[in-house]
């Protein structure tokens, strides 16, 4: 009998067996085939009994490994899972975990690379909007636990000297993201939400829910019943869209924004002064109308709590 492996080799062996996608026994066959372990390794290293062999016992860990991570991905991407259905999502998770096993101590980070992975995956070709939908869901997850910041109030803004308002720079809250999409995934997200008979659709909308495009959820980990069959559209015409995602009090919201608002938010993000933002809206408008439009935008941003500060250069 060969010498027993040391602790490192034991852990490497354990890991390779419980993460083998088809189970412990096929995983062992692969190791033996590649000359990485003798066929007797299981019985040499692990203890079994008449109830459960070493392979049976390791299979318990293999199942827990995969299903725990599958559940986590489903919680972070409930609409992606609903769109493609259980079987496809299961296969997507399998492929994803093989390519990107978790490298972070927190499960919170597990899905960070899924949106990009989806874009290059066969499922992304079958459901062309899927990568955009995954990006929207991941942005909601990121905003959920982004740093806190006191929101800018109207009173804060009113303290700006009128003659210097054009120099002022707005600062976005940390719990805010602006996304651009190739598909109208805000609409697809809403359709999936509305079609869902589970608890997510029963949740009351909060905040500025008067807007038909705003969707809120109590938290990105909130449970969402998932469908066994795909419920997302198989085809969707490309359409350049943009959305903002933010947190207000404990709730996460997202909302479609038009091209003009998206450009203004990008300018805010780039640190452009208010005067420049007004100028960008001047095309086809009188100066008064441009100022009014900026005023309305800023008012809605303040109402939604997506601004954290307004500063004047020294």
């Amino acid at each position: 009998m060969a010498a027993r492996p040391d602790l490192r080799k034991t852990q490497d062996l354990f890991w390779s067996l419980i993460t083998a996608p088809e189970g412990v026994r096929p995983g062992l066959e692969g190791l033996v085939r590649r000359g990485e372990a003798p066929s007797s390794i299981l019985d040499e290293v692990f203890a079994g009994d008449e109830r459960l062999s070493p392979a049976d016992r390791l299979d318990i860990y293999a199942n827990m490994y995969f299903f725990r991570l599958l559940d986590c991905l489903r919680e972070d991407f409930p609409k992606v899972a609903a769109a493609v259905g259980d079987d496809r999502f299961h296969n997507l998770a399998t492929d994803f975990l093989l390519r990107h096993p978790s490298g972070h101590p927190s499960l919170r980070e597990l899905g960070r690379r899924l949106p990009r992975f989806v874009a290059d995956h066969a499922l992304g070709a079958a459901f062309p909007y899927l990568a955009d939908l995954a990006r929207l869901e991941w942005a909601r997850a990121d905003v959920f636990d982004a740093p806190d910041a006191a929101p800018l109030s109207r009173a804060d803004l009113a303290r700006l000297p009128e003659d210097r308002a054009g120099e002022a720079r707005l600062e976005l809250a940390p719990a805010f993201e602006l996304l651009r999409f190739d598909y109208n995934v805000v609409r697809i997200w809403r359709d999936l939400e509305d079609g869902d008979p589970g608890p997510a659709s029963a949740r009351p909308r909060e905040g500025n829910s008067a807007s038909p495009d705003v969707d809120a959820e109590a938290g990105h980990h909130a449970s969402c019943a998932h469908a066994a069959a795909p419920r997302g559209p198989r085809t969707s015409r490309p359409k350049m869209t943009a959305a903002r995602v933010w947190r207000q009090r404990a709730s996460i919201y997202h909302k479609s924004v038009d091209e003009e608002e998206a450009r203004c938010l990008e300018m805010v993000r780039a640190g452009e002064p208010l005067g420049r933002i007004c100028q960008s809206l001047a095309a086809g408008r009188s100066p008064a109308r441009a100022t009014e439009r900026v005023g309305r935008l800023i008012q809605s941003w303040i109402e939604d709590g997506i601004l954290a500060a307004c500063t004047l250069p020294d």
């Binding site: 040391d6 602790l7 490994y65």
Partner: peptide, 25 residues
């Protein structure tokens, strides 16, 4: 227990062998 090896996280509580080597470690 151990939960990671080779930079990968199992997110599971995996058992140790109860040896003097593991104890010192």
């Amino acid at each position: 227990c151990w939960t990671s090896v080779g930079g990968h996280q199992a997110h599971d509580l995996l058992p140790l062998p109860y040896t003097e080597e593991a104890l010192r470690h």
